[in-house]
Each structure stands twice: as C-alpha cells, then as structure tokens.
C-alpha cells in the first residue's frame, strides 16, 4: 500500500507537467484549430527564462578585499552580485535564492510576447492550410527555437536550484500513520503539483467565469456565429494563444529545478504531450488534464520493480500501450468532443 501511494505521488509531478503542456496544446487547438508542434519549445523557453533570470541575478562585480589574501599572497578578489549591493547582503541573497519563483513573473510577459509574435507572424497564415502543413511549419519552428537556445546556452543541461526553503523532502508517510522515511516526497515536487493545480484551476475559472472566457468558449463552439455577432473573435483567440504560451512557459519555469533545463527537453515532452492530448480527446480541456495526470501516474506505476518483473519493459511502453488501447476503443479519446478532427 505504501508503495502504491509513493508511486501515485511520484506520478503527480510528471503528470502535472504533461497536464499543463497538454492544456496549452488543447487551448490552441480548440480555439485556433492549429496543431502546434512548437509547444514543447515554449515549455523549454520557459525553463530557460528561469536559467536566464538566475544568471542575471548572479551578475557580479569584483572588489578587492584588502583584509584577506588568496593562496598566492595576492589581495583576494571578492565577487559581489549587484543585487546584494543594492538590496543589502541578506535581501540580495534571498532574491538570488528565490530566482526560480521570481522567474514566473519574469517569464509571463516574455512568453506572452513570444506567443503573440508566433501567432501573428507565422501561425495566422496557416489557419486555412491543411493540418499536415501546420504540423510541419510548427515542427520547423521548434527546431529553429531549440537550436537558437542551444547556440546561446550550450548543449549541456544547466542545473537551476529550487529555493533553500523547498530543498529536502517531506515525510508524507508519517501523516498517514506509516513509519518515517517510508513515503518521502521532495518539497519542490509538491510545490509543482499545487502550482499546476492552481494554474489549471485559474485557466478553467478564467474561461468559465469571465465574459472574455465566455466569448472564447462560444468561439470554440461556433466561430462563425460569434463572428457574425460583431465580435472580433480573432483578436481574442490571439490572446488565448498568448495565454497558452504563458501556461507552457511557467510550467517550464517551475520544472527547471526538477530536471536541469537542456535544449531538447521541449521535444522530449512534446511527443508525450501529444499522446496525452489525443488520449484526452482533441479539443477537450478537462480531457487533457485528466489524461495528463492519468498517464503520469501510470508511467510511475509501471516503473515499480514488482510490475517490471511481471511484464519486462512495460515501464518503457506503458504510455503508448494505453494510448493505442484508448484510441482503438474510444475513437475520440477519453472526453473528446464530437466532430473535432474526425475527417
């Protein structure tokens, strides 16, 4: 039983990442009808926003400390980050420590801008083209984005730490009456899960309870009629694209401490996210979230030793097996809407 709880917990953080990316993909697909293969790249750009911010915060100037000498007897050069100079050593250190959460604020405007430029500059011209063309052009864009990031940040993963307050693990088992150290769970992964839940809840609330969201939902259901009512639906859809990009971006920012960002992390997540979207049902937002968590948890279950010894190799293929079974038994995915992508 404790092993099962542990696996569910382990699946949650990966499931959260899948759910966040799949949510953005579905938002774009549901509003604009575009299959966006560059969405993984947006996730990756988000992670690199965190890297950039922590690099910026660590920018330092050198001073010579006359009281100390280095091992050669020369006066010691001390590097002080500018932030520490401006805000005092303690606040400065705290700001540097909290670089990743701060990067959320930093990344949102960047991601929205990237999303706007992508939509207005490129994807706008592909609404009328075949889905294959959309896939191909966004696939090309993803290659370009990831190569640009590789050029500036190099090919190696860049470790980006979580704040000290969230280092270490939480002994979850004690809460449920198990022995200590049976079910332990890193704090940051817990933060990631709650953060993902918050973002997902925020997006749903935004769509459900605001006038803007209502118009967008109406546009998703019947774009033409909304347009005929004199509402500029294109503009709202562009804004939704920006929001979807921001969701992918902050998912990437928060994921940076879990997995050191590298330039191909977007592609790694993209393939699985597409499987998630299709399993959830193209165009269904709750489906995307449900399938994201479901596949994340299944994946971590399959990596349990007991199951691996039962069916060797299952941990490698479980997601695909589930996807194949679901697609063959439920043509529209778990919660797919009727009439979406059935041609």
């Amino acid at each position: 039983m404790d092993a099962i709880i542990l696996q569910i917990l382990n699946g949650l953080d990966k499931g959260s990442a899948y759910a966040l990316i799949a949510l953005g993909l579905t938002l774009i697909f549901g509003t604009l009808g575009v299959v966006n293969f560059a969405h993984g790249a947006l996730f990756m750009i988000g992670a690199f926003c965190a890297v950039t911010l922590s690099k910026i915060l660590n920018l330092s100037f050198e001073t010579i400390d006359p009281t100390k000498t280095d091992f050669l007897g020369n006066p010691l050069k001390v590097k002080t980050p500018y932030v520490m100079e401006w805000f005092g050593p303690e606040t400065g250190a705290a700001i540097i420590d909290w670089a990743v959460p701060l990067a959320i604020l930093f990344s949102i405007p960047i991601m929205i801008a990237v999303g706007f430029i992508m939509e207005r500059g490129l994807i706008k011209h592909f609404y009328k083209r075949a889905h294959a063309d959309q896939i191909l052009v966004t696939f090309g864009l993803a290659i370009v984005l990831q190569e640009v990031v590789k050029y500036f940040f190099g090919a190696n993963p860049i470790p980006t730490g979580a704040p000290d307050a969230f280092k270490g693990s939480f002994d979850f088992g004690v809460l449920l009456g198990y022995d200590p150290n049976v079910i332990i769970y890193p704090y940051w992964r817990m933060v990631y899960f709650f953060f993902a839940a918050l973002v997902i809840g925020g997006v749903f609330a935004f769509l459900q309870f605001t006038t803007f969201g209502m118009v967008v939902r109406a546009g998703m259901a019947d774009r033409e009629t909304v347009g005929l009512l004199g509402i500029n639906i294109d503009k709202r859809f562009t804004i939704m694209f920006g929001i979807a990009a921001a969701v992918a971006g902050i998912a990437g920012v928060m994921y940076a401490p879990i997995n050191s960002p590298n330039y191909h992390m977007g592609m790694d997540f993209l393939v699985l996210s597409f499987v998630v979207v299709v399993v959830g049902g193209m165009g269904s937002l709750p489906g995307a979230v449900l399938a994201g968590f479901l596949l994340g948890i299944l994946e971590s279950f399959a990596s349990m030793n007991q199951i691996k010894s039962l069916i060797p190799g299952i941990d490698q293929i479980i997601i695909y097996v589930v996807a194949i079974i679901i697609l063959l038994t439920r043509p529209r995915g778990l919660m797919g809407r009727k009439g979406v992508m059935e041609e």
């Binding site: 299959v35 889905h131 896939i135 393939v271 597409f274 499987v275 299709v278 193209m282 060797p312 190799g313 490698q316 293929i317 997601i319 695909y320 097996v321 996807a323 194949i324 697609l327 063959l328 043509p331 992508m341 059935e342 041609e343």
Partner: peptide, 30 residues
C-alpha cells in the same frame, strides 16, 4: 491494420506510438 482504423492526427499518433514502442523495446527488453 491497427493504425488505419483511425485517420487524421489519430493515425499519426498511433503510428508514432508504435514506433516509439519499438524503439524503447529495442533499447531495453529486446
């Protein structure tokens, strides 16, 4: 035979899933 029961993007994802399965299995169990 299995993949062609669906068309469009579903077909693409099914073929992708089979290929990734073969790849992962070739790397590990096989």
């Amino acid at each position: 035979y299995v993949s062609l029961r669906r068309s469009g993007i579903y077909f693409s994802i099914l073929t992708l899933a089979f290929a990734q399965m073969s790849f992962n299995l070739a790397y590990s169990v096989l």
